[in-house]
Amino acid sequence: MTVMPEIAAAEAELVDIFEDLHAHPEIGFEENRTAQIVAEKLRAYGVDEVHTGIGGTGVVGLIRGKGTGNRCVGLRADMDALPIDEATGLPYASQSAGKMHACGHDGHTTMLLGAARYLAETRNFDGTAMVVFQPAEEGLGGARRMLAEGLFERFPCDEIYGLHNNPMAAPGEVSLVKGAAMAGAQFFDITVRGQGSHAAMPHQSRDALVIASSLVGQIQTVVSRNVPATETCVVSVTQIHSGAAYNVVPAEARLAGTIRYFSDEMRDLAESRMADLCKGAALAYGVEIDFDSHNVFDVLLNDADLSDAYLDAAREVVGGDKVSERTTPLTGSEDFADMLKVVPGAYCMVGHSGDMPLHNPGFVLGKEILPVGASLLSRIVEKRLPLG
């Protein structure tokens, strides 16, 4: 593994930054402390321009290389935490109840800071490196807000790269899927409005809870009996809310969940069948049922040529035996997809130690990934903006 010597020498600082961010997690669009630390570090590293408040709490830094070229390569990291109570027992565990960096965005932020420091110190590239610290990746639309506020109009960019930690891969393993790499996502809400009654006289009700429970079962057939076996689509009901008393049949019940897809056709099919099921249940039970669905993430599309460049950079950092081009996309979603719709680029996964999956209260990011990720992000800039 060939971690940049300058980054290896700064590993202790990276660990300190990471542990501090981990101990002070902030939910999407509330990353005020994190953004302040990021901006202060960028200025201390000698980054040429530091811009704050983009997309709420987003931060952008511009680093000019030794050459006079006008091309720009972007690097992006997300900063937000999740509404989870941490259960790791780490000495640097979350100090904020109900908030935890259970997806490793604290690590992503640290890695990009490490890359910014290296690039500002060495400047061995011809053009401009742009570092983008994005808020609110976890379903709150941080990328879209940055784009809506003119991210790439204010800071034109030729190509952009990102990465995500992967606790399910061996430390230092880098993988990437060309083309459709991660699923698009819809979130849906279903509200059943029935008629409540005394629990001792349920015949006087139109039981919203029973109707909602029936819908949960019916929704499981949307994929299994409608989506062709050669296509990929996931429909998951993740919430059910109804009732507040032991002796009352509730008048209303709410369901919520997500659709994951790789083609608009499959997304539209799933939405249409769910809407039909709701209409049918409303007619069958004599109640009102509202179905609403809205897009949260687009399908993440990795540019083929830039994916090859990213894989080449990874081979120089971790070695060819630890780099792979996967063919199976992930059904998880990532709002970096929105940036890739505007600017071509690529997104990879980097393995680290740990035995807990993402979004788990016991998730621990292996700190050995920090200099690896920082080196990978730095190297892709140098390769895409070569001097001479």
Rank of each mutant, 00 (worst) to 15 (best):
I7M: 02
A9F: 11
A12G: 14
I17A: 14
A23P: 06
G28Q: 05
E30I: 06
N32Q: 13
R33D: 11
I37S: 13
V38G: 08
E40I: 01
A44K: 01
Y45E: 09
G46Q: 09
G46Y: 06
H51E: 07
G53N: 00
I54D: 07
G56V: 13
G58R: 03
V60R: 09
V60W: 00
V60F: 14
G61L: 04
K66Y: 10
G67R: 06
R76A: 13
D80K: 01
D85G: 00
L90K: 13
P91L: 04
H101G: 06
G107M: 12
T109Q: 03
T110Q: 02
A116G: 12
Y118I: 08
T122M: 14
A129C: 15
A129F: 05
M130K: 14
P135F: 13
A136Y: 03
E137T: 04
E137M: 09
G139C: 08
G142F: 05
R144Q: 06
E149L: 07
F152Q: 12
L163Q: 13
M168Y: 04
M168G: 00
M168H: 00
V177R: 09
K178A: 11
A183E: 05
D189N: 15
G196Y: 00
A199E: 09
M201N: 00
I211R: 11
S214E: 08
L215D: 04
V223Y: 10
R225T: 10
C233D: 07
V234I: 14
S236T: 15
S236M: 07
I240F: 10
A245C: 01
R254P: 10
E265H: 02
D268K: 05
R273M: 04
M274P: 07
G280I: 02
G280P: 10
Y285D: 14
V299T: 05
L301R: 12
L301I: 13
L301T: 11
Y310R: 01
L311R: 03
A313V: 03
V317Q: 07
S333L: 01
E334T: 12
D335A: 10
D338V: 00
M339R: 07
M349R: 12
V350A: 04
G351H: 09
G351Y: 06
S353F: 05
D355T: 10
P357E: 12
G362V: 00
V364A: 02
L365M: 13
E382M: 12
K383H: 09
P386W: 03
P386G: 11
